[in-house]
Amino acid sequence: MAKQTNFLARTWRDVNELFFVRRRPRWLGIPKEWEQPDEEAFEAMLQRDDFVSLADFPAEERDKHPIIMQDLADLKQYLVPTFYRLSQRSRHYQNLFYMYQWIFVLGAFLTTLFGTLATYNIAGPQEVVPTAAPVVEATAEGTAAAEGTADTSADQNIPGSTRGNSTFWAQTFSIFTAVIGAFTAFFRTLSNRSDPQKRWGNTRRLAEELRMHYYKYLSHQQPYNSPDRLTKLRDTVLKVKEQEYV
């Protein structure tokens, strides 16, 4: 019983890690701009994103490390907001990129699916006719073959008949195919216009570069080991901001 439970738990965990569960895009999108939350939520964000937050400092420790506290205040003022702004944009473009790609992949699948169904409904009844024809002849007791042909073509307009249903579904699936094709083409144009993949890569790289500077500044590593370190930090942040639009 315990083994079965373990197996089920493991399977459930694995299923939750599959891409169509964990990495599926948010169809309603992710906001492009970051809005700074209130202080408590901001501290929680810092903690979650592996920055140093007040939660890392027990109250009695804060007075023991005045330099670190000052550095953290500088970083929080000048670097962290830019990091979150870039990170938010990165998430926005990442989601946009995957959303478009999912639309293309699903669009290709649905186009094939509906195209196949349309073809089946167009081709299907034509192959059924020869087997139905003898029945028509038998009941009509040897009437002309042309009459059978006329009956079959007339069936196309009779709701509820096999031929009529097939034509209806063939038309319906063809329309679906065309609509999906148009829908996909529309999103292809949008994708080419906004170029989300390049922007996602660029903003993520810049955000991670800021994270590196965060720890270098906190540790007083080069280039932040001189008296004008704060100026250098502000200059770095500015340069990173400029690179976003290069």
């Binding site: 140093v52 420790e61 330099i67 720890y215």
Partner: peptide, 24 residues
């Protein structure tokens, strides 16, 4: 890389060392 020329105390460095290990 040169050793940090910062004004960190030994306590600061130990604290930062642990933070870096944990957070980074």
């Amino acid at each position: 890389p040169p050793a940090s020329t910062s004004i960190h105390t030994k306590g600061d460095l130990e604290f930062l060392f642990k933070l870096y290990l944990n957070k980074r």
